[in-house]
């Protein structure tokens, strides 16, 4: 409990600076804008009866420009806020720690990674076997008791298989071995 409190205070002190006007957001936004503009430039014109009309690139180009402008605005906001800061700026280490906290230490990356692995898994061993393994592992990672994890996983996966597979006739993956298990 005290550990959790401790973590909270750490994240709070760095959160406001990093969260609202961190430099990554404007940078990402600018990159998105530039990328959009670059890709849109390769789209063809649309000419009908000799007249150029808004074509495939019309909308994406407008959006690309908007993202670039928005990136500048966000950057200015960030810089202005940095100048007016009363507390000392978080160090690189603090910032990295905060990002790790968002993404790493608390299962987020693990959940994402297991989801990504989940797709090939159910393709090869079928939904039921793959689903049970996936769900049990993730539940364990989320601090469930192991017997709970296994029982719940089996029940939930079977329920899903019945609802989707039988009631709604969704062809759930049966695995490379062609069995429903």
């Amino acid at each position: 409990m005290s550990n959790a409190n401790n973590e909270n205070t750490v994240s709070e002190s760095t959160q406001i600076d990093r969260k609202h006007y961190g430099p990554t957001f404007p940078i990402l936004l600018g990159a998105l804008g530039a990328w959009t503009l670059y890709l849109s430039a390769q789209l063809p014109d649309f000419i009908q009866r000799g007249r150029q009309l808004p074509g495939p690139r019309y909308f994406p180009t407008i959006l690309g420009i908007f993202f670039c402008v928005a990136a500048v605005v966000e950057l200015v906001r960030y810089l202005r806020q940095r100048r007016n800061r009363t507390v000392p700026a978080p160090s690189i280490r603090q910032r990295a720690f905060a990002v790790m906290q968002d993404w790493g230490s608390h299962s987020v990356v693990l959940i994402l990674a297991s989801l990504i692995v989940f797709v090939p898994l159910i393709r090869y061993v079928g939904f039921i076997a793959g689903g049970i393994v996936f769900s049990a592992l993730v539940m364990l990672r989320l601090r469930a008791k192991w017997y709970n994890a296994i029982i719940l996983s089996v029940v939930v996966v079977l329920v899903i298989a019945v609802v989707f597979g039988m009631l709604f006739r969704v062809p759930l993956p049966r695995g490379a071995f062609g069995i429903a298990l």
Binding site: S135, V138, V157, V170, L172
Partner: peptide, 12 residues
């Protein structure tokens, strides 16, 4: 448990 159920339902 709810989170895992949500994950499974999201994927399926």
């Amino acid at each position: 448990a709810v989170m895992v159920i949500v994950l499974l339902f999201s994927a399926v």
